[in-house]
């Protein structure tokens, strides 16, 4: 079996979640790498959208910014932020891939502050387009390394909505009905959300890890699916595409 690192397996596993013909709103870095890998493997007609306005580009290389020229290279349209976010708001966008400094058991994300808002201990970039994508896209996915600092009982600041307080709290919030977190992909496992409580639930474990490892690297109690799947390891072809064609300078997979 080929050797691979934590970032590589996250990207490969994430890419497999995107089906052909779907629309996906992505940010730079790992989400973009996953979308590019999906286009080169199982989803050649995946429609990638960037929040700054790029619609359905043929990415010649990994963009550095969600607004750089690569994001509308040989694209269907170089539009506006309104074009993208309003397509999401109208229900045209199936998936989004996000990250964040902290995530809780309902998939809520923090990318704003640690500590007090007025004089924070650590200031992060803020929502950017994350709250918008997570509010509007049908299925929100998160890619993040599995550890106790990121997976926390309570996020310091709820920047981006997951299932909010669980149960039917999101449905009551006023956010578009039927949208919400779908899967969480880490370097150890794939999680979904138990349909009633909306709590995070482990459904598949990556090679070399156990449920115990995942739980020990999570700051809250995880649910466990009745049947845990074994995540297939990245294939030689997935790794070749990722290393040679998608990220030859190791911007993302070298992190």
């Amino acid at each position: 079996m080929a050797e691979y690192n934590a970032m590589e397996i996250m990207i490969c596993v994430a890419a497999r979640e995107l089906e052909n013909g779907a629309t996906v709103g992505v940010g730079t870095g790992a989400p973009c790498a996953a979308a590019m890998l999906a286009q080169k493997t199982t989803a050649p007609d995946l429609v990638i959208m960037f929040e700054a306005g790029g619609i359905y580009p043929t990415l010649p290389e990994m963009p550095i910014s969600v607004g750089d020229s690569r994001t509308f290279y040989k694209a269907a349209m170089a539009g506006s932020m309104g074009d993208i976010m309003e397509a999401c708001s109208r229900g045209f966008v199936d998936y989004t891939f996000l990250g964040g400094a902290q995530i809780d058991m309902y998939g809520n994300l923090n990318s704003t502050v640690i500590g007090n808002h007025a004089k924070p201990k650590v200031r992060f970039p803020g929502s950017g387009g994350a709250n918008d994508f997570a509010s509007f896209c049908w299925r929100m996915m998160v890619m993040t390394p599995q550890n106790n600092r990121r997976f926390v009982e309570k996020v310091d600041f709820l920047t981006t909505p997951g299932w909010l307080q669980g149960g039917d709290s999101r449905a009551k919030s006023g956010l578009p009905l039927g949208s919400g977190p779908y899967k969480i992909i880490t370097d150890m496992a794939i999680m979904d959300f138990e349909p009633q409580s909306k709590r995070m639930r482990v459904i598949s474990i990556h090679p070399g890890y156990s449920f115990k490892d995942v739980q020990e690297n999570c700051g809250f109690e995880l649910l466990k699916a009745p049947q845990l799947a074994d995540t297939p390891a990245p294939s030689d072809e997935e790794l070749r595409l990722l290393r040679e064609e998608i990220d030859p300078y190791r911007y993302v997979i070298g992190r």
């Binding site: 708001s89 809520n108 704003t112 808002h117 929502s127 709250n131 918008d132 509010s135 509007f136 600041f157 709820l158 920047t159 981006t160 909505p161 909010l164 709290s169 999101r170 919030s173 006023g174 956010l175 578009p176």
Partner: peptide, 13 residues
């Protein structure tokens, strides 16, 4: 009017 941010600290601040 928009339909984002509801239920979050982003709208609170």
């Amino acid at each position: 009017p928009t339909r984002n941010v509801m239920g979050t600290d982003t709208i609170k601040y």
